[in-house]
């Protein structure tokens, strides 16, 4: 059984990093990277928890993480396609220039 605490600290750091990246970055691609970091923090939590069952490594979280990786990959792909369309209209991918809709 691996010690859990270092992994929990890493997960918390990654999640906060991703959330901060989502909130303060101006570049749309970096926002998508922030989302990716948040997903990966959750995946890491799954994997580290899978070692905590007594005597064996639970295969169930691994299968969940496999599917979750595919899902967030597709979300990011759609996001990147939208960034391309934004670039066509605005000639920039700075998210603060997208102010034409009232927030």
């Amino acid at each position: 059984m691996l010690p859990l605490m270092p992994y929990l600290v890493a997960v918390a750091l990654m999640f906060v990093t991703g959330l901060g990246c989502l909130m303060i970055k101006r570049d749309m691609v970096r926002i998508l990277i922030g989302i990716e970091i948040m997903f990966n923090a959750a995946n890491l939590l799954f994997i580290s928890l899978s070692t905590q069952a007594a005597g064996f490594i639970d295969p169930f979280p691994h299968s969940v993480v496999m599917m979750a990786l595919v899902l967030d990959g597709t979300v990011i792909a759609v996001g990147l396609a939208m960034v391309m369309n934004v670039y066509k209209h605005y000639k920039t991918i700075d998210v603060r220039k997208l102010r034409r809709l009232r927030w």
């Binding site: 999640f15 991703g18 959330l19 989502l22 749309m28 926002i31 998508l32 922030g34 989302i35 948040m38 997903f39 923090a41 959750a42 995946n43 939590l45 799954f46 928890l49 979280p61 969940v64 979750a68 899902l71 967030d72 979300v75 990011i76 759609v78 996001g79 939208m82 960034v83 934004v86 997208l98 034409r100 809709l101």
Partner: peptide, 22 residues
């Protein structure tokens, strides 16, 4: 613009959902 905003917020929410699953 609306689509990207929707995507960014919903995808981040999806990460929270995965976190709660974990």
């Amino acid at each position: 613009e609306a689509g990207f905003k929707y995507l960014a917020m919903s995808a981040a929410a999806g990460a929270f959902l995965l976190m709660s699953m974990a």
